[in-house]
Amino acid sequence: MGDVLIFAEHQGGHFPKATLTAVHAGLDLAKKRGGKAIAVVAGDAPEAAAGEIAKYGVAKVIALAHPALKNYLADAHAQALAALAKKEGAEFIIATATAMGKDLFPRLAARLGAAMASEITAINDDGTFVRPTYAGNVMATVEIDGPIKVLTVRGTAFDAAKPGDSAAPVEKQNAEIDAGALKMEFVSFNATKSDRPQLTEARIIVSGGRGLKAAENFKTVLEPLVDELGAAMGASRAAVDAGFVPNDLQVGQTGKVVAPELYIAVGISGAIQHLAGMKDSKVICAINKDEEAPIFAVADYGLVADLFKAVPEMTEEIKKLKHS
């Protein structure tokens, strides 16, 4: 009872910060429920990555291997993890609500006949969990019944686990997969090319909205500020819909949820769906020419100005600061 299986998502053997937040939450949950935290790394050859995550405070790491786990596909991964969760007698299985976690975990829950709480932001002492609903405008306290409980965590709500001096044992297991039941085929992955930090990893994010007016202006007006700050670039839905920037830069209720140390919103009005994705940032800064824009209500520092003038000025000022 109380054992927690942590699905440690990796990107070619590397663990992004998002994964480490699930590790942190899993360790906390195991401690509160008096169980062990066990990490699982899946792949066709997951041993090296498993050795890496073993340093993060878990009791054991399972390197779950199978040729069908080479590229991520929901059906093979759900089969493998469900069989493992049963075999290990885990009470909880947890991952971060990344695109993969969101795709996989409901399928896994259904396979286990278990209920799932999505994107939890808190683990309460009384056995309940907190999760945001209605674009973060309503926080629901939920309880899960049943011998096994499935959870994803909102990455911004937990710290990243930190590596220690010792490493937990790594146990290699061959995944139980009925290959005849697999029906999905991986075709290709078209990565968004960028040298900038990822949105969910960045310390500073500069996001642009419809106010930027054209893709060209993201390049000439916003990007110099982004790069001067070493920041990640984000966008509102309106900017993505207009084709100014790639889809995976969308911040919000139905895009990425971020909480950097500094979030600068440029030409973004601050619709609730956008706020849902950034309002837990430590410091929020907004530039908008409309002083009534709702973004100002959540901004620590608001500048009512034309962005085409204010953004280059900020970029200049930061350059000066760096050279002083």
């Binding site: 609903t133 309503v138 926080m139 306290t141 309880e143 019944d145 309002k279 929020i284 002083e291 520092y301």
Partner: peptide, 21 residues
């Protein structure tokens, strides 16, 4: 999965305006 209770999230205090870039 049972919802025990709902609550409003803590409100963020913003609104301060700055004069220049």
């Amino acid at each position: 999965l049972k919802i025990k209770t709902l609550a409003a999230p803590p409100k963020r205090q913003g609104g301060r305006k700055i004069a220049s870039a």
